[in-house]
């Protein structure tokens, strides 16, 4: 279970001070798929980065799987991120010099999984997103939708339960985006907890629940 309470995040000081989050509280149950919506600059990415332990909140508490993440040291938090979170980004964040397979292997390298095992798990992940035949392709040589599917394969290859996606369909056309959402549905069925940031209502509607963020606060309705 994911639980945040009175979460705040402030950037900068003095005149350049920005209160990105001003006390956010909500819970996401295991196996839930939740959308986060809000206008640009509302703090969605900030929230997602905190949930993914890429960033730290200024105040409040964040508990994931019974661990109080905000009390962890930087080192512990990084290790926690490695073992609990998978990321999907709008720009896919695949590395051009590596094949899709090698990109998917990345979280397994971080976990020091042996090479043969790494290959096997990464191939399985690629298979589950329908990219078996493209494993050796370079990211630049496949479509945007396929790149995002590879990125999703990478997010699940590490075996982590929480998948965080920041505008995963933002760079895709409508039908490709819909396919990607189908994939997230499949992931949810396999037991993953998913948080998707989006500004598209059609995408958000495919989730179990929508959290709206505005003025650094959260609400369940608009």
């Amino acid at each position: 279970m994911l639980k945040v309470e009175n979460l705040t995040k402030t950037y900068g000081k003095g005149d350049s001070r920005v209160d990105a989050l001003r006390g956010i509280s909500f819970t996401v149950n295991d196996g839930e798929m939740v959308a986060v919506m809000g206008r640009s600059g509302a703090g969605k990415s900030t929230l997602l980065n905190i949930l993914g332990c890429m960033d730290t909140p200024t105040g409040g508490s964040y508990t994931l799987d019974g661990i109080e993440v905000n009390k962890l040291s930087a080192k512990e938090r990084n290790r926690f991120r490695r073992d609990h979170v998978g990321f999907v980004f709008q720009n896919f964040a695949l590395m051009g010099q590596y094949s899709l397979l090698e990109n998917v292997e990345l979280p397994l390298v971080a976990k020091d999984v042996r090479k043969a095992e790494r290959r096997r798990i990464a191939m399985d992940a690629l298979k589950s997103v329908g990219l078996t035949g493209k494993a050796d392709r370079n990211p630049a040589r496949v479509s945007g939708g396929q790149q995002q599917r590879a990125a999703i394969a990478r997010a699940i290859a590490g075996g982590n339960n929480l998948i965080l996606a920041d505008e995963p369909t933002g760079a895709l056309d409508y039908s490709t985006g819909a396919e990607v959402m189908e994939l997230f549905r499949d992931l949810q069925k396999s037991g993953k907890t998913i948080v998707i940031v989006t500004h598209e209502k059609e995408i958000a509607d495919k989730c179990d629940r929508i959290l709206y963020i505005s003025d650094g606060k959260v609400s369940e309705t608009l």
Binding site: G52, M54, A74, K75, N78, R79, R81, R82, D83, F87, F89, A93, L94, M95, L106, P107, V109, A110, K111, R154, G158
Partner: peptide, 15 residues
């Protein structure tokens, strides 16, 4: 950029 990708995918800062 590559290092950021590695970081996001579980690499530690020390890694």
């Amino acid at each position: 950029y590559d290092y950021a990708v590695h970081y996001a995918n579980g690499f530690q800062v020390s890694d």
